[in-house]
Simulated assay, not measured.
Amino acid sequence: METVRADTIELYNRYFGFETRHPLVGIVRFDRTEQTEPYRMHFGFYALFLKKTAGCVIDYGKTRYDYDDETVVGFAPGQTVGIHPLAGGHSPECIGLLFHPDFLHRTPLGQKIRQYTFFSYSSNEALHLSSEERIVVQDYMEKIARELQHPVDRFTKALVVSNIEVLLNYCMRFYERQFVTREELNHDTLGRFEQLLDEYLDSGAAARLGIPTVKYFADKVCLSPNYFGDLVKSETGKTAQEYIQLRMTRAAKELMSAPGTSIKQVAEALGFQHPAHFVRFFKRQAGCTPTAWRSGADA
């Protein structure tokens, strides 16, 4: 399958035959007239696509979601995705916003772009929209498109960046809503995570494989690490890493309560290569050293 390197917006536009009105930002439109073969694309810029119709499968999501109408997908610089047209080879109808990181240079949005976590996934999940939400997203893309029709002047960048920022803020609102509307599935995922974490610590897997990581459990529940972390945070108020550390601390206390168990044995059971690393971890979590905790528990 062909891999297209779209390191710049101009290269992307050239591949699809779009006009480049600005080298660092643009709005593109696809309709269902295009015939295309499967391909992979490497992005050198941010891209946000509102897909209006079915027409392709994108290699980025690992979970089947409960919405199947309007979706937004976001890609970040450095990501590579696979595009597989459905039967007939037509591309989906969609509108897309493209903007290069250089366009955000010396702007407040450039300093906080990483806060928009739907861009940051190594394996992305789609944002599913209601009809009303789709109208909001399309409206701001149209505003940006109209601004780009004007000759570039000293107001262009400020106006376009401000509209991009409002659009991204709306997408974050819709993204967080997605956790609420998928509450039952989220609970199931959290329950599975807790079960897997307990098994990891109780079965001796930590001693063999090392300290448990967010990525390990995200892979097990078929989600990307960032989406999984956001899900855990929305359900528990703690990050996935904090949740793992709390469970490790509890497991450490359980192990240290067993007579004759050394600090070295506890450290190894939890995946620490050196007891000193475990001592620092435990003191940070529990507020005292393992030896001090054990002395207090024995008192």
Rank of each mutant, 00 (worst) to 15 (best):
F155Q: 10
K157Q: 12
L159Y: 02
L159K: 09
V161S: 00
N163G: 00
E165F: 00
E165A: 00
V166C: 00
L167R: 05
L167N: 01
L168K: 05
N169Y: 01
N169R: 05
Y170H: 14
R173G: 05
R173Q: 08
F174M: 15
Y175A: 09
Y175P: 07
Y175D: 08
Y175M: 07
E176Y: 15
R177L: 06
Q178L: 01
Q178R: 03
Q178S: 13
F179C: 04
F179Y: 13
V180R: 08
R182S: 12
E183S: 14
L185P: 00
N186I: 01
G191Y: 12
G191H: 13
R192M: 08
F193K: 00
F193A: 01
Q195H: 06
Q195T: 14
L196K: 06
L196C: 01
L196D: 03
L196F: 02
L196P: 00
L196E: 06
L197A: 12
L197I: 11
D198K: 08
E199S: 07
E199L: 10
E199C: 06
Y200P: 04
S203R: 12
A205R: 14
A206E: 05
A206F: 01
A206G: 09
R208I: 11
G210T: 08
I211V: 05
P212L: 00
T213A: 11
T213C: 04
T213N: 08
V214N: 02
K215M: 06
K215R: 13
Y216Q: 11
Y216E: 05
Y216K: 11
F217D: 05
F217M: 03
V221L: 07
V221H: 08
S224E: 09
S224Y: 08
P225D: 05
N226D: 11
G229D: 13
D230N: 15
L231C: 04
V232T: 05
V232N: 09
K233V: 10
E235P: 04
T236V: 13
T236N: 14
K238S: 03
K238D: 14
T239L: 03
T239Q: 06
A240H: 06
E242V: 07
E242A: 13
Y243N: 03
Y243M: 10
Y243V: 07
Y243K: 08
I244L: 12
L246T: 14
L246M: 12
L246N: 12
R247P: 04
R247L: 07
M248G: 02
M248R: 13
T249C: 10
T249N: 11
R250C: 10
A251S: 14
A252T: 09
